[in-house]
């Protein structure tokens, strides 16, 4: 157990928003993590780290497919689309699934949003929906294209975190005020 009470494997793959250390502080997830760590009121969530992403690619053989696509690269978009179609229903199983289920139940939200570098999916109300959104986040055309292109350049394959965030509904959380208040008089 680490200082947050997380088991080593869990801390490697899942970290609370605001306490996540995954080597990236840009992008929507990194920025939300930064805001939460600064003590601002950000709806709570858990971050699936880039290590989780690596494990997902390893488990699903996606890593090899990206490598193969990079080797014979002609059209990035076409290659990314082919990889996406091949993996778009790949299940997240075993330990990775268990970690997602555990984190979701502990979060205790009625609905969550899945936030990634390229997209946000909201109103997710069941574990299979969340799992599918996580898979989509790691199989986005933009993301796959970037991975293929980077590997083709001989660099390390990029990985990115995904945030599962408690979803708040405006009607339950407060009210907003317009910028211009009417002048008195």
């Amino acid at each position: 157990m680490d200082e947050q009470g997380l088991t080593p494997s869990r801390a490697r793959f899942i970290q609370p928003l605001g306490q996540a250390r995954y080597g990236r502080e840009s992008g929507p997830v990194g920025e939300l993590n930064l805001l939460a760590s600064a003590g601002l009121a950000v709806p709570e969530g858990v971050v699936l780290t880039d290590e989780f992403h690596r494990e997902f690619m390893k488990d699903s053989d996606l890593l090899q497919s990206i490598q193969a696509a990079a080797d014979g690269l002609e059209d990035i978009h076409k290659s990314a689309l082919e990889v996406q179609l091949r993996y778009d229903s790949i299940p997240i199983e075993g330990e990775l699934n268990r970690l997602i289920c555990e984190a979701l139940i502990e979060l205790g939200a009625a609905a969550v949003a899945v936030v990634s570098e390229n997209a946000i999916k909201s109103d997710l109300e069941s574990i299979p929906e969340v799992r599918a959104a996580i898979r989509d986040a790691w199989l986005s055309l933009q993301g796959l294209g970037r991975q293929i292109e980077t590997v083709a350049r001989g660099e390390n394959i990029p990985r990115w975190p995904v945030l599962i965030q408690r979803q708040l509904y405006p009607e339950y959380t407060g009210w907003s005020m317009t910028g211009d208040l009417p002048e008195k008089g």
Partner: peptide, 18 residues
């Protein structure tokens, strides 16, 4: 008394049903 599966799971955990 839940409106979604996630909420049901959260409540079940709270009540010690899981």
């Amino acid at each position: 008394g839940a409106h979604s599966q996630l909420e049901a799971l959260a409540k079940a955990r709270e009540l010690g049903l899981l």
